[in-house]
Amino acid sequence: MIRYRNVTKIYPDNSVALRDVSFDVQHGEFVSVVGKSGAGKTTLLKLLLAEERPTKGEVLFEELSVHQLRPSDLPQLRRNIGMVFQDYKLLNSKTAYENVAYVMEVMGLDEETIARDVQEVLEIVGLEDRVHHYPLQLSGGEKQRVAIARALIHRPRVIVADEPTGNLDPYHTRDIIRLLLRINELGTTVILATHNKEIVNRLERRVLTLVEGRLVRDEKQGKFIVV
C-alpha cells in the first residue's frame, strides 16, 4: 500500500533528515514510527503527503509515485490520507461540526450525507455534546478528538498521526490511542509517529525505529528501545 524506496531527504541548510530509508506498509497495519526529536519522523510523514520532496528515492502510495503527481492531483492524494497532528491543526473560525464537515465539503458530498456522517463520527469520538463549540472552547483532548473525527470522516485508506498525544495528559492520551486502535480494527491502516515509550510498548504492534534519519530497526511486534 505504502512503499518508501531508498528515501533520502536533505534540507537546503544541509541538515540530513532521512538517509536511505526503505520499508513497506501493508493495508490494515498499525505501524508506530519511533525515535528522538529530530530523528526524521515528521519528515517521513510529510513525504507521504507530498508536503516535502525527497532528495533521493521515491514514495509510493497505492503504486503511485507521490512526487510525480501534478500539483492539481495532490488534493486527491490527500483525501485518501487522514492526518492527525500534535498541534491539532483545526480551523479556529469553524465549529467542531464544521471542521469535520469541511473535509466532506471539499469532496463535494451532499449536505444530507455530511450531516448524517459528521454527527455519527462525532458520537464515535465522544463529542456529540460539543458539536457547535469552536476549537478555542475545547480542551486539548477534545481538540484532538475533533482532529481524529476529521481524519476519519471520509473513510481514508490510511490515517497518519504525528505525535497526536504530544500535548495531552495521560488520560486523554489513553483515549486517543484507544480510538486509533478502534479505527485500525475497522480496517484502516494507521501510521503513528511518537516518542512516547509507554504507548509503543503497550501496543505490541509493528515498530519502525529511526535514529538520526536512518531506519535502524523494523520489528513486527516491537518495543520502544532507546538508542
Partner: peptide, 16 residues
C-alpha cells in the same frame, strides 16, 4: 497562512 496550510493538508483544491 496556517488555516490555508490546514485546508491544503485535508485535500482542499486551490479554488476551494
Amino acid at each position: 497562512k496556517e488555516e490555508i496550510e490546514i485546508m491544503r493538508l485535508v485535500g482542499a483544491s486551490s479554488w476551494f
